[in-house]
């Protein structure tokens, strides 16, 4: 090759090189948008859970705390998409390490912390895109579109994405081969999803079929007055052991915040929601970066 300024080495401060973070983030985005199957996956999950289950089960369970079943599970479906997007992005690390670009990255002088940050930001950005798909169905489930609520929801999705990508990266650094992916999908995503208060409430008033049907405008009006359950129903409460699992699941708090932002309904203490949503991802990021560095040395 002809004359060119010699490389000056990666500019980094405390292991953070903006250029490296950016290119690794960009790589994740390019990979995602070139693989349509992931977008279709997000769409089909939304249709299955929000439309089919939402309207199907919603026909029997008329309302939960004054919300239709479709409305109630909307934040859950967003969460499901975020979980899939982040974990899929993170687990691809195993493939990447054995037969992909990651070896090239590991042998380069680029700081591993920046590589990890790029990966996490990429996973979180994909999670926001995937989590936005259910939002497109808002008019279909009679939820008014509020721009502020949507922006707040994106922020929550982003931090949820950081946390779950970091968790996935930590798992991926421990996985020897890719064959464990199926176990991750079923053994991690689904328990986190089912035990997050996504599809059933911790406790609440649930209305059955046959109770009075009221117009949506009136429902909104009553909600503003603090009246949630109309006509009648049952007070339900989850068995204690499931409650314990839900309380232990960090996704529960992030989902609760998401539901608060989108519907104005929450079941868990707001302080816990905020702490778990914004502080835990930072801790997980540090652990993920540490594990990435260790994976390199222990091979």
């Amino acid at each position: 090759m002809t004359e060119m300024a010699a490389p000056i080495g990666v500019k980094a401060w405390m292991g953070i090189s903006p250029a490296v973070v950016h290119i690794m983030w960009q790589r994740e985005m390019l990979r995602f948008f070139r693989d349509r199957s992931q977008l279709w996956g997000g769409l089909s999950r939304t249709i299955l859970w929000l439309v089919i289950l939402g309207f199907g089960l919603g026909a029997s369970l008329r309302e939960i705390e004054g919300y239709t079943y479709g409305q109630y599970i909307l934040p859950g479906v967003i969460t499901l998409n975020v979980l899939y997007a982040s974990l899929q992005c993170a687990i691809s690390l195993v493939w990447d390490r054995e037969v992909g670009l990651l070896r090239e990255v590991m042998v380069s002088p680029a700081p591993m912390l920046s590589v990890t940050l790029g990966k996490l930001l990429g996973g979180a950005s994909i999670a926001v895109v995937q989590g936005t798909i259910p939002l497109l169905f808002l008019p279909g489930i009679y939820v008014a579109i509020d721009p502020v609520a949507i922006i707040e929801a994106w922020v929550v999705m982003f931090f949820m994405g950081i946390l779950m990508t970091a968790v996935g990266v930590i798992i991926a650094t421990r996985l020897k081969t890719y064959e464990g992916f199926g176990a991750i999908a079923n053994g991690v995503i689904q328990p986190l999803y089912f035990l997050s208060g996504s599809i059933f409430p911790l406790r609440g008033v649930i209305g059955g079929v046959g109770f009075i049907q009221i117009p949506d405008a009136l429902r909104d009006e009553l909600r503003r007055l603090g009246i949630f359950a109309i006509g009648g129903g049952w007070v339900v409460q989850l068995p204690a052991w499931i409650q314990v699992l839900v309380y232990c699941n960090p996704v529960s708090y992030q989902l609760d915040l998401l539901r608060h932002v989108l519907l104005g309904f929450e079941q868990l203490p707001m302080a816990a929601d905020l702490l778990v949503t914004f502080a835990l991802p930072l801790v997980a990021t540090v652990v993920a970066a540490f594990m990435m560095g260790r994976m390199l040395k222990s091979r």
Binding site: P7, G9, I23, R27, R31, D35, D96, L101, E104
Partner: peptide, 23 residues
């Protein structure tokens, strides 16, 4: 090969340039 097969040849090279701090 340690390439990202979903990316183009130029994109793979650009990642390398950044990783090695080419201005």
């Amino acid at each position: 090969p340690a390439l990202d097969e979903r990316l183009t040849a130029a994109e793979n090279l650009e990642i390398h340039a950044v990783l090695y701090g080419i201005a």
